[in-house]
Design a protein around this nucleic acid. Sequence first.
DNA 1: GCTCGTCAAGAGCAGTGCTCTCGATTTTTT
DNA 2: AAAAAATCGAGAGCACTGCTCTTGACGAGC
Lengths: 230, 230
Amino acid sequence: MTASRSARERVRAELTKEITDIARRQLATEGAGGLSLRAVAREMGMVSSAIYRYFPSRDDLLTTLIIDSYNALGEAVERADAAAPQEDHTARWLAACHAVRDWAVAHPHEYALVYGSPVPGYQAPQDTVAARVRDVTVLGRIASDAWRAGALRTPAEEVPQELEEGVEGFRELMPGVPDGVIWRAVTAWTALYGWVSFEVFGQFNHSFVDRRGAFDHAMRRMAETIGLAQ
Amino acid sequence: MTASRSARERVRAELTKEITDIARRQLATEGAGGLSLRAVAREMGMVSSAIYRYFPSRDDLLTTLIIDSYNALGEAVERADAAAPQEDHTARWLAACHAVRDWAVAHPHEYALVYGSPVPGYQAPQDTVAARVRDVTVLGRIASDAWRAGALRTPAEEVPQELEEGVEGFRELMPGVPDGVIWRAVTAWTALYGWVSFEVFGQFNHSFVDRRGAFDHAMRRMAETIGLAQ
DNA sequence: GCTCGTCAAGAGCAGTGCTCTCGATTTTTT
DNA sequence: AAAAAATCGAGAGCACTGCTCTTGACGAGC
């Protein structure tokens, strides 16, 4: 009976969740800098020091929110990929792109937390690595699948010899795929997040009336660039 | 004689510069969030309230630093472009790219200020627009020059009709250039800053031993993508 | 029933941005 | 040259932050 360890542990779990929920709301409205433990406590009718029973520091609360954000983004991308027809790699790529963009536009502050400038003085603990790679894992899988299915045109030119050893981290994500394809995937990856960051961070203000359409067009052209059939 | 209005105005100008210098140093070490008026005052041997004689608020000091950063980046890009052979558009593009990256790597916090997540609660005043577009103006000019010189391969496919009106802001930067080329320039622009942001913000940690070489290769391939001759 | 661990509360410390007032000094005006 | 005005640094103070420590109440296990 897990309910036996209830009473205390259950209310503790509930309060922890309430803290993170309120903190996430504050994050959405004020941004990472405006996240205040005292404000969270105030909203809960608690005294500020009580929060420290649940999170040893502000950074720890922030870490939780970061991991949650990684997971939310990763899950959105995973779902979008899974919903697209398995064999249509271009559709999967576009679905993943739009999942990233939609989530980022809907949660700009959380997106800034994970793909924006690093929070000063904050060092991401090791716990985040598992959640951090969920989105890029999906992108790597799409590229791998496309390559294995022969849906990727072979890159025209080779990757310089001296750069081969640099892509170790990415090779794990796309095993058995030639370096030229890995490079194209990395390029697409940076182009995707470069575009989304520009849009979310306001670099596209005063241009692009149809932001979604522009993004769609850019990502379609990017698919073409990396060798995906249209 | 401008020296007549000296005494006060001169010491005021000097103190203002000293404040921004110390603030910039703090920015470089602590980041935007760690910029503290009191710390600046302390380092100057002043009392904190005296700073407000020179900058009405922390945001105003930050605005000055942002404008300075825009100008420093823009100037670096302008110089790099000017140093490259006028007719070699690929060389100019690569020089501009490396100028952006070199400056960003050397001044990560200042780069974060202008191309990272927006500072929460901070609204960029109108004064920044002049400095903000210096770098992208150079990129636009390279693309325009390349187009006019016939060094850009014509885009294979057309820009969808419904997206044409969205690129107004960019058309000013590249007058007389067809929309397909503008699109390619915008794509290259986002790819450039997407890559630099990934590198500066730590997304490339644990991959890419030779960061500069990887960046160079990526930007060369991007030049190829937008139709520049190799 | 008693002990032990957990918890909320409160006071307090050091720091922040910012405002206001008060003399002193410098500049401008008369 | 004297008076008026503008400018400046200093200080006190307000409201806020993260965080620590102590105190007293409550509930779970022996």
